[in-house]
C-alpha cells in the first residue's frame, strides 16, 4: 500500500512550538518512511518593513539579520540531529524573504505533500493585519497541513521512538 505522504515539510521559527512540531514530523516520517525537510525563513520582509518605517536603523537591521541567521542555523542543526537520532532522512533549508510566500513556493517546487506547523494561535481579532505567519501558511499552503498542538503528548511519543546509530542499527536492541 502506498503511504499518503512521502515528502514532508516542517516550518521552524525559533519557537518551542515549532520544535515540537518537528518532533511530531519526525515521528510521522519514521512511520510513513517519508523524507522530512525542515525550513527556516529569515523574515527579510519584516526586517525591510521595519527599516522602511524607520523603526529599525540600518545597523539594527544588519545586527538582527545576523542574529536570526544564527538562530536559523542553531534550530536547523538541532532538528537535523533529532532526525538522525531516529533515522529519518532529512534536508535542512535556510532561505529568506516573506515567510508564507517562501514556504508556499517551496511546497510547490518540491512536491511537498504534507506541511507540519506548530504554534497556530487563537484568533483574537478580526483585523487582517493581526494574522500571524503560521496562520497565513495554514490558509495558503497548496497541500494538506498538520497542526501540532499537544506538546506533552508529542514529547512522550518522540521519546518512545527507538534511537538509531549510523547505519540504522537500533540502539535499544
Amino acid at each position: 500500500m502506498n503511504e499518503p505522504f512521502k515528502q514532508m515539510l516542517v516550518y521552524l521559527d525559533g519557537s518551542e512550538d515549532s520544535v515540537v512540531a518537528a518532533m511530531a514530523a519526525i515521528a510521522l516520517a519514521l512511520r510513513l518512511e517519508a523524507h522530512l525537510t525542515a525550513m527556516y525563513v529569515i523574515n527579510t520582509k519584516a526586517l525591510g518593513e521595519l527599516v522602511k518605517a524607520r523603526i529599525f536603523l540600518e545597523m539594527e537591521e544588519r545586527e538582527y539579520r545576523r542574529d536570526i541567521e544564527a538562530d536559523a542555523d542553531r534550530y536547523l542543526n538541532h532538528v537535523e540531529k533529532m532526525a538522525a537520532q531516529k533515522g529519518v532522512p532529512f534536508t535542512a533549508v535556510k532561505t529568506s524573504g516573506s515567510v508564507h510566500t517562501e514556504v508556499k513556493r517551496y511546497v510547490k517546487e518540491n512536491e511537498i505533500d504534507l506541511l507540519v506547523l506548530g504554534g497556530i494561535s487563537h484568533i483574537h481579532s478580526r483585523r487582517d493585519e493581526m494574522v500571524s505567519e503560521s496562520d497565513r501558511m495554514m490558509r495558503t499552503a497548496p497541500c494538506p497541513v498538520l497542526v501540532v498542538r499537544d506538546q506533552d503528548q508529542i514529547w512522550d511519543l518522540f521519546e518512545s521512538l527507538p534511537n538509531v546509530l549510523a547505519g540504522g542499527i537500533d540502539e535499544t536492541t
Binding site: G14, N43, I55, Y64, D71, E129, E133
Partner: peptide, 24 residues
C-alpha cells in the same frame, strides 16, 4: 532578551502593521 531575534522582529512588524490603521 538577546536570543529571541526572530520573535522580536515579528512583534515589531506586527505593531507597525496594527498601527497603520488610522481608525485603530
Amino acid at each position: 532578551p538577546e536570543k529571541e531575534a526572530s520573535a522580536y522582529v515579528e512583534l515589531l512588524a506586527s505593531i507597525a502593521r496594527a498601527t497603520s490603521s488610522a481608525s485603530l
